[in-house]
């Protein structure tokens, strides 16, 4: 069967969950892959729970709703608690350890802890914590080519917001080196 990567990103609204999902989606598009991006939607625009399913595959995608993620990016404790057991055995969990003061008990998954929010704050890139985690995810999983990742993030940020682009590229870099 075709190689498919199911990614679930979860956290609070306002943490850039949907944006991070878009960067993965656009990177996959740049690589010529099939993909889907599905946000949770609801009344909470800021501060409520928010998650985003991204599926990347070599074949047309069936269900775009990720219920058994290969990769979970958790940006707060409720999200980790909610989805930790849904991750497939052998899957990957990326944890923002500045936001989540808890270790994953499962031993059949690969877990990476990154002080993403703290690092982002130290580097004056408050909104980019999740992009640091995406950088880490890229380093560990290599889910697309380096060129596609760069091109993907450029697609997500309007040309007139060049400063934001620089910050996000830097956040990816930090993530890859962490």
């Amino acid at each position: 069967m075709a190689k498919t990567m199911n990614v679930l990103l979860a956290g609070f609204g306002g943490q850039g969950i949907l944006f991070a999902g878009k960067t993965i989606a656009y990177s996959a598009l740049m690589d010529g892959k099939e993909l889907s991006w599905l946000p949770s939607y609801g009344p909470e625009m800021r501060g409520g729970t928010c998650n985003c399913s991204v599926v990347v595959s070599d074949e047309p995608i069936g269900s775009p709703l990720v219920t058994a993620p290969d990769v979970l990016v958790a940006m707060n404790l409720p999200s980790l608690d909610k989805f930790v057991n849904a991750v497939v055995p052998g899957g990957t969990i990326l944890v923002d350890s500045s936001m989540i003061n808890k270790k994953v008990e499962r031993t059949d998954v690969n877990v990476y802890y990154v002080d993403a929010t703290k690092i982002a704050d130290e580097n004056n890139m408050h909104s980019c914590a999740i992009i640091i985690l995406i950088g880490k995810m890229f380093k560990e999983l290599g889910f697309c080519s380096k060129e596609a990742l760069d091109a993907g993030i450029r697609k997500c940020i309007p040309a007139k917001k060049a400063a934001m682009l620089d910050l996000n590229l830097k956040a990816l870099e930090i993530g890859q080196n962490s």
């Binding site: 889907s36 991006w37 599905l38 946000p39 939607y41 775009p64």
Partner: peptide, 10 residues
């Protein structure tokens, strides 16, 4: 439906 309306694909 809401899923198709909200999701993105190429």
């Amino acid at each position: 439906d809401g899923m198709l309306g909200q999701m993105m694909e190429p």
